[in-house]
Nucleic acid binder design. Structure first.
Lengths: 133, 133
DNA sequence: TATATTCCTATTAATCAGATAGGAATATGG
DNA sequence: CCATATTCCTATCTGATTAATAGGAATATA
């Protein structure tokens, strides 16, 4: 119940790995080896992290990935959302009135409250907190 | 991300339905019809709720299900756990030292903290809160 | 031009949730 | 004792999603 995807766990490990390098870059292959992540699978993960602006990249020889920000400024919620999208306990979170009960549906409010609670927890903690303690 | 299973949502609807009956019983077929839940699928759900002591049942003619407790005494966490088990963002929450980093693994502590936060939210709210408002 | 890299797209494989099916066990009322 | 209505048990199917693999195009360097 409420399990975190392998992708997101890989993403956090990859980000921690880059964080340790303090701005210096690493190739996808290096990260994969160092963190025991399937190399080709990791490429897709890095691509999402880049699309969200959390990391930057250079192609070609001597290319690689590097942090785009200070790890202390990266909220865990940003990583999670970059990989798996917004937290949505039930699909109607973003669709008020989708269920028959209309606007003031108690179960829906209950799940929205849970989403808010989870979001807050993840937003209060940074990559620095999680990778260094 | 972090989506609630259809089973758990069905379970909550079924419990709300029984709660409205204030101790009187309803058959699985009645609940299924009233809440638009696949009838055979619902049987398995009711069976788990019963195994957790949240509802009681009688077999045979005139049989059915009824609440085992006051809805105000049933925490949402109990329903969720009855259906999908304990909340476990990562498999190692119950397995300290499973990962290479040993006992004091920061990501693990992070996920345990999230579990604790979710558990608290779900334990603070009762079936009565969610079904009546 | 050879090489090392990111980047893009498709495909496969494995896992799991949701749903269905059939019938055994059990209780009731006629 | 029998017909019926129910819970209860076990097996199976199906479709969606995730995890992983594969191949190669684009790009940068020396």
């Amino acid at each position: 119940m409420f399990s975190v995807s392998a992708r997101t766990q890989y993403a956090i490990r990859a980000m921690s790995c880059l964080a340790k390098r303090e701005g210096r870059s690493a190739t996808s292959a290096e990260i994969a080896q160092s963190e025991s992540i399937p190399a080709k699978y990791l490429e897709g993960i890095l691509s999402r992290l880049k699309a969200s602006g959390l990391i930057e990249s250079e192609r070609g020889k001597n290319g690689g990935y590097r942090m785009a920000k200070d790890p202390a400024e990266i909220r865990m919620l940003e990583i999670v959302e970059a990989i798996d999208g917004r937290i949505k306990p039930v699909t109607c979170v973003d669709a008020p009135g989708a269920c028959s009960q209309g606007g003031d549906c108690h179960p829906r409010n209950f799940w929205i409250g849970l989403k808010t609670t989870i979001d807050a927890y993840l937003a209060e903690r940074t990559l620095k907190d999680v990778s260094e303690g």
